[in-house]
Simulated assay, not measured.
Amino acid sequence: MEFTLGADEVVRRIKQLQSSGGATGKKQVKQSDPELMRNALFYFPSWDHALKNADQL
């Protein structure tokens, strides 16, 4: 499996998704942006951890 995004890029895309009012639920993101989900789960233990990390920055 290839990971095309760095951890910073994952966080930036999550923040962008949140600010645009997009759905941030795991199921919705998995369908709409599977690349983001794959990379987020590579760098963070879970999707919830990735969301919390994006909120902290």
Rank of each mutant, 00 (worst) to 15 (best):
E2Y: 07
E2W: 09
F3T: 03
F3C: 03
T4L: 08
T4M: 07
L5S: 03
L5E: 04
L5I: 03
L5N: 03
L5T: 01
A7P: 00
A7E: 07
D8L: 08
V11K: 05
V11D: 09
R13H: 04
I14P: 02
I14V: 11
K15Q: 14
Q16P: 01
L17T: 08
Q18F: 10
Q18C: 05
Q18Y: 10
S19Y: 08
S19W: 14
S20A: 14
G21E: 15
G22A: 09
A23I: 02
G25P: 00
G25I: 04
K27L: 14
V29H: 09
V29F: 13
K30P: 00
K30L: 13
Q31I: 06
S32F: 13
D33T: 07
D33H: 11
D33P: 02
P34G: 10
P34M: 15
E35T: 04
L36C: 06
L36G: 04
M37I: 11
M37E: 09
R38P: 00
R38N: 11
N39D: 15
N39V: 08
N39R: 13
L41R: 14
F42S: 00
Y43E: 00
F44W: 11
S46Q: 13
A50E: 12
L51T: 04
D55Q: 13
D55I: 06
L57T: 02
